[in-house]
Design a protein around this nucleic acid. Sequence first.
DNA 1: TTGCTTGCAAAGGGTTTGCATAGGA
DNA 2: TCCTATGCAAACCCTTTGCAAGCAA
Lengths: 132, 132
Amino acid sequence: MTRQRRVILEELAKVHSHPTADELYARVRRRLPRISLGTVYRNLDLLTKAGDVRKLAAGRQRRFDGDTSRHYHVRCTGCGAVADLEVEAPDGVEEAARRASDYEITGHEIVFSGRCPRCRARGGRAKQRSDP
Amino acid sequence: MTRQRRVILEELAKVHSHPTADELYARVRRRLPRISLGTVYRNLDLLTKAGDVRKLAAGRQRRFDGDTSRHYHVRCTGCGAVADLEVEAPDGVEEAARRASDYEITGHEIVFSGRCPRCRARGGRAKQRSDP
DNA sequence: TTGCTTGCAAAGGGTTTGCATAGGA
DNA sequence: TCCTATGCAAACCCTTTGCAAGCAA
C-alpha cells in the first residue's frame, strides 16, 4: 500500500461523479503533484481486481466508481454523465439468467439510459450520442 | 443506402456473436474486398443512431448487435465473449428507476457477468479480466 | 534487503477524420 | 446533377508497458 494508492482510493471515495482516469488524475495531483497518469491507471486496475473499485464501461472512456456496494447507474444520452441509482435488485433476475443460459452467472449490472436534468432543460431535441 | 451499408447490415444480421468492428470488417471484406475499415465504422455509427444496430460496451473494444429486439447480454469474465440472454424484462425496473432519479429514463440494459462453458471447462481458477 | 511500485516516455491499438474521388437518388 | 458516402491514410486519444530508480515491509 503505497502513498499513491491510498490517495487514489481516498479521492475516488470522495467523489460521486464516476470520474474518468484523467479526471481522477487531476484531483490526485493536487495532493501528489509528481504522480503520473500511468500510476493512476495501474492502481485503478489493481484496485478493480481487488474489488475495491468498480470499472464502468460508458462511452469511449472508462469511468471509475469508488462505491462497490450494490447499486445501478444511469447514463445521460446527452452529455454522458453517469449517476448512481438506488433501485432494488429486481427479484430473481440472476436466477432467470441462470436458467436461460449455459454461462455460470456471477453478477449483473443495469445501466439505464436517460437525460440528466441539465440536458433536459437545455433543449428538447438535442443530439444523442451513439455511445453505449 | 449504399452497397456497403447494405452488406454491413446483412452480415451483422447473420451472426450472433456480437462482433467487433474489425471482425465484421473481415466478414464484409469477403464480399466487398475494397471496403475500408473507416467505412465500416462510419456505417455502424450511422446505423446505431438510426436504431438499426445496437452498440455494446464490453471491455476495450466495442461490439455490435444486429438484433435490436429487447434482450439482454452475458459477458464472459474469462474470454470476453458476449452472448444473448432471453430473459423477461424485470417488472417495473424502469418505473423504479424513474422514481429514484431525476433523469428522464428512456431505457435500460442488463449485462450479466459469468463464465462461458468453454472457459469454465478450461480451468477452475483462470484469471479474470478487470474489464467492465 | 527484496520485490513490488513509481515516473517518464514511448508504444499500442481501437476509433475517428480530412480529403479527393466515386456513386446513389 | 447534387449531395452524400467511400477509400486511404494519417491523426487522435485513451490505455498500456518497458525500464531504471525508489520505496514499503
